[in-house]
Structure formats: C-alpha cells, structure tokens
Amino acid sequence: MKEYLKLTDKYFGAIFCLLFAVGCFYMHFDKPKLNSKTDLINVTGIVQNYSFIDNSGWRSDGKRYIFKFMDYENDFQISANHINLFDKSRFEQIVNSGHKLSIEILKEQRELLNEQNERILAISISDSKNDYLKSRDVILREQGPSSMIAGFGFIVAGFLAYIVKRKNLT
C-alpha cells in the first residue's frame, strides 16, 4: 500500500491532468445537443424579476444571471459560458418588471417548464426591438471544440508530467 501511495504522490501531476482530461471529454459529450435553431423552442413571458450576481475573483461564487417570468414556476438562467455574449447593460437599461421578453430554450428542456426549483438555460433573449443574447452566437460557441482541445491539452500535459517524473526517478 505504501508503494502505491508513493507512486500516486510522485505522479500526482500526471494523474491530475488525466482526470481533468476525462472531465473535459465528459463535458463535451454530455452537453445538450445544440446544432441549429431547429433544436430550440420559443417561450414568451412577462418579466417578474431578474438578478445578476457577479461574484468573480478569489473564493467567489462566480456569475449567475437569472430571471423569472410571471407565468412560469421555474427560473431561466444564462449559462456562465454565454455571459460575455449577453448585453447586460442594455438589458438593465430597458427591461424591468412587467416587460415582455421572448427567449429560446432547448427543446429537450421543454418538460422542465413550470417545474418549481428548475433552471432552464436561455439560449437567446430578445424583445420586440432588441436582442440581448443572440442564439446565433451561442450556437457558434457551443459548436466549437474548446472542451475537446482542453481535454487533449490535459492529456499532453499529463503525459509530459509523467515523462519528467519518470526521468527524475531513474
């Protein structure tokens, strides 16, 4: 058992990188399918309230952008991956309680509508005059290979960490 712990300790960097690679591949293959606008449905509602929490930095909660419609029990959320595509300043200037919005969500999340304590991802957000989050931009980002590239990067880093440690042991 002590030998196993020594090896784990010596190859911690390689093991860590490989675990991260597995996580990246899992995220890539497990994420909802979003290939085109045909994967989306339109939901219209009246804004009840919204909350933009920006707790970035050390020991923080990150960013959470959530809003609620009057006729739906669930919350709608902008994915953390898409926050920089969202026009927050214009949204805050124009949208308030009682404002009518149109959003697009994934078809596979349709059954979550009106489920209490469920958060549904908003792929696009607009009103009659403004686009605050464009589905075209979100689809382009989702189709990108960033998680696959990260996964392969972690595999390479893990392999290099293994080689460096192995050479140092001999």
Rank of each mutant, 00 (worst) to 15 (best):
N130T: 06
L140S: 07
E111H: 08
L169P: 03
G153N: 12
F67Y: 07
H28V: 01
T170L: 14
I163N: 15
I120K: 07
F86P: 00
D54T: 02
S128M: 10
K107G: 01
K134P: 00
C24R: 01
D137N: 06
Q93M: 10
G158T: 06
P32C: 08
S128N: 13
P32E: 10
I66M: 13
I155A: 08
N55H: 11
M70C: 11
R110P: 04
F76H: 01
K33H: 13
T170G: 11
Y11E: 05
S60R: 10
E111M: 06
L40I: 02
P32F: 09
L121F: 05
S97N: 14
R141S: 02
R119F: 04
K6T: 12
Y26I: 13
L160V: 09
I53P: 00
K88F: 04
Y11L: 14
N168T: 03
K37H: 15
I149D: 09
Y132D: 01
L112K: 06
I123A: 04
G23P: 01
F159W: 10
L113F: 15
F91A: 05
M27D: 09
R110S: 11
S56K: 13
I41D: 08
D9V: 06
F91N: 03
D61K: 12
R166L: 14
R136M: 05
C17F: 14
T170Q: 15
A21R: 10
D9G: 07
V43G: 02
S79R: 14
T8M: 14
L133N: 03
E108P: 02
L140M: 15
N42F: 12
N117F: 15
H28P: 00
E142Y: 04
L121Q: 00
Q109P: 01
V43K: 07
S135E: 08
K37Y: 13
K31H: 11
L113M: 12
L5R: 11
L40M: 04
I149S: 13
S97A: 12
L5I: 13
R110E: 12
N35A: 02
I149V: 14
A161L: 09
F12W: 08
I125R: 03
S126T: 15
Y72E: 06
G45S: 09
V43W: 03
L19N: 11
D137K: 07
A80Y: 15
F86S: 00
